[in-house]
Simulated scan of single mutants.
Amino acid sequence: MRPIQEIYNQLTSPRKVVITMHQKPDPDAMGSSLALYHFLRQFGHTVTVVSPTNWAGFLNWMPGCDTVLDFESPKGRTEVPAILQQAEWLFCLDFNTLPRTKTLAAPLKALNCVKVLIDHHQQPEVESFDYGVSDTSKSSTSEMVYDFIVGSGHGDKINTDMAECLYAGVIGDTGSFRFPAATAAVHTMVAHLKEVGLQHTQVHENIYDNYLENRLRFIGHVLSNRMEIMYEYNTALIAISKGDLLRFEIKTGDTEGLVNFPLSIQGIKMVGLVIDRDEERKWSFRSKGSVDVNTFARKYFEGGGHFNASGGHTNDSLDQTVKKFKQAVKENALQLQ
């Protein structure tokens, strides 16, 4: 994978471009992709954003979100294959291994176009990309897209639509500037976005104050009945059954942020959240300080991500994977003290 700086001088030559992200995109994945979409279109590129799956309804406000194709939808299945075949550039944002794109992985791997990576997760699959940047010190892929735009000498192209998308991605991945990755550079970036015309309050409301009543009742149910605290290991576990999802009519995005709630408990250093999906059990892990959940997820649950935030999955039943988690916690007792 060659340095992304090598494509700076090619940005002004119009091409057919596809931008994609990981499955079930979060604010950073969608925000960084749409910001890049608005940027490249200013140079005359023909740009299509493709999501491997559907996304949370609270992202629909983002400028340009109505143009994004869901690969799993009937329209996406019909239109995306031809669009991919015509692509000259493929930008891969907020993921660094093709399996993170679910059923889109095989079509992406088969493409012969130029593939560009912009990502901040650990252990990138560098052999899958022609150009790129992978930087785990960055707060978000949105920050990296901002750096890409400014570094290419086109910071003047940032408009309010791009600012809203970039800001959404940054607050999503930094916990509204709570996490250590919110460096001075992040705040300098936000200051620039404010100068462009960003109305940050509206972005916060669009992301965090945009749910239905059933989600709040679901959270209350989960915290009361599905949260288990293992004080001897400074760990919390939340296991959500398929029945819980059906009872409260939970949709994509409604469980966003739920894994962070137990971290507010004094002494808790790690949280595991598992959700019983149709095809598999999906894990989310969060931690504080020196507890490495990236390694934990990779070792036990075929996952990975960041040092203090990662995910995983398994085909085991809900009961089986919960037992495996508890055993894994015991094996890592010293690290959790």
Rank of each mutant, 00 (worst) to 15 (best):
R2F: 11
Y8N: 07
N9L: 15
T12P: 00
T12M: 14
S13V: 15
V17L: 04
V18L: 10
H22N: 05
L36I: 06
V47N: 08
V47L: 13
T48I: 11
N54D: 13
F58W: 12
L59S: 03
W61L: 01
D66G: 09
T67G: 08
T67I: 09
V68A: 00
V68D: 01
D70W: 03
G76N: 04
T78M: 11
I83V: 03
Q86F: 10
F91Q: 10
N96Q: 12
L98N: 09
R100N: 14
L104K: 06
K109S: 14
L111A: 11
L111R: 12
C113S: 04
V114H: 12
L117A: 00
L117E: 00
H120V: 03
Q122L: 14
Q123R: 14
P124D: 01
P124C: 01
F129N: 00
Y131F: 10
G132D: 03
G132V: 05
V133D: 03
S134C: 05
V145Q: 09
D147K: 07
D147L: 08
I149Y: 00
V150I: 09
G153A: 07
G153Q: 04
H154T: 06
K157I: 09
T160H: 09
A168K: 00
G169H: 04
V170Q: 06
V170S: 08
I171L: 15
G175L: 01
F177C: 08
F177H: 11
A181V: 06
L193R: 08
L198Q: 04
Q199N: 12
T201K: 12
I207T: 08
Y208M: 08
Y211I: 11
R226D: 04
R226L: 03
M227C: 06
E228Y: 08
M230N: 14
Y231V: 14
Y233C: 08
N234L: 13
I238K: 04
I238R: 01
I238F: 09
A239W: 03
G243T: 13
R247V: 14
E249F: 10
T252E: 14
T255L: 10
T255H: 05
T255D: 09
V259D: 00
I268Y: 05
V274C: 03
D278A: 15
E280P: 14
F285R: 00
R286Y: 00
F296T: 06
K299R: 15
Y300T: 03
F301T: 10
G303K: 05
G305L: 08
A309Q: 02
S310T: 05
G312L: 04
S317A: 04
Q320R: 15
F325W: 13
Q327A: 15
K330H: 15
E331K: 15
A333Q: 07
L334S: 10
L336H: 02
L336G: 00
Q337T: 12
